[in-house]
Simulated assay, not measured.
Amino acid sequence: MGVSVTTSEQGPVPVVHVQGDVDVTSAPSMREAIDALILAGHRRMVLDLTDVSFIDSTGLGVVVGRLKGLRRSAGVLTVAASHERVLRVLGITGLDTVLDVAPDVDAAIAAAAQTAQ
């Protein structure tokens, strides 16, 4: 399955929406979308993975790399994820303790906005 990556403004922070499987071939699209927001000056954003049912180590590497970059500039990356397989991968890797993970986009936006203050 391919991946679709779009961005939107939903409230106080931009959202990167990802649909499909995030793997070695599709992870660069996600990275490019996040990087474009960072280059545009955004330091707080939401990564919407609610329509992702699979993410491999390459996709996780993109998330971790962008999180580190944002944190260096006092930024925030909040992840919205609800699929059991994605949540399980985040838990097994321990990323659920490093990332702010919310069950849906609205909760992720609220968390990112609150963290921003």
Rank of each mutant, 00 (worst) to 15 (best):
M1I: 13
V3M: 10
S4T: 14
S4M: 11
V5L: 03
V5Q: 12
V5R: 07
V5A: 06
T6G: 05
T6W: 02
T6D: 12
T7L: 00
S8M: 01
E9Q: 11
Q10D: 15
Q10L: 01
Q10A: 04
Q10G: 03
G11K: 02
P12N: 07
P12G: 15
P12K: 12
P12Y: 04
V13Q: 01
V13N: 01
P14G: 02
P14M: 00
P14H: 01
V15R: 01
V18E: 09
V18P: 01
Q19W: 00
D21L: 07
V22N: 06
V22S: 05
D23G: 10
D23Q: 07
V24C: 13
V24H: 10
S26I: 03
A27P: 12
A27W: 14
P28T: 09
P28S: 13
M30L: 14
M30F: 03
M30T: 02
R31Y: 13
E32V: 04
E32Y: 10
E32D: 14
E32C: 02
A33K: 00
I34M: 15
D35R: 03
A36T: 09
I38Y: 14
L39R: 13
G41D: 13
H42C: 09
R43H: 15
M45F: 02
V46H: 00
V46W: 00
V46E: 02
V46N: 02
L47V: 13
D48I: 11
D48Q: 07
T50G: 05
D51G: 04
D51P: 02
V52D: 09
F54L: 14
F54Y: 15
I55N: 13
T58D: 07
T58R: 08
G59E: 07
L60F: 10
G61Q: 07
G61H: 02
G61V: 05
G61A: 03
V62W: 09
V62Y: 10
V63N: 06
V63T: 08
V63Y: 07
V63C: 09
G65M: 06
L67A: 07
L70Q: 00
R72L: 06
S73F: 14
A74N: 14
G75E: 03
G75M: 06
V76Q: 11
T78M: 01
T78G: 05
V79M: 13
V79P: 05
A80L: 10
A80N: 13
S82H: 09
S82N: 13
S82L: 14
H83Q: 11
H83F: 11
H83W: 11
H83M: 08
H83C: 06
H83A: 15
E84I: 06
E84M: 08
R85I: 10
V86K: 04
L87N: 11
L87W: 11
R88E: 15
R88H: 14
L90P: 05
G91Q: 09
I92K: 12
T93E: 12
D96M: 09
T97A: 14
V98Y: 05
V98R: 12
L99A: 07
V101C: 02
A102F: 01
P103D: 05
D104N: 13
D104H: 08
V105K: 01
V105L: 03
D106I: 08
A107P: 03
A108M: 04
A108G: 08
I109L: 01
A110S: 13
A111D: 05
Q114G: 11
A116N: 11
A116H: 12
A116I: 11
Q117K: 04
Q117Y: 10
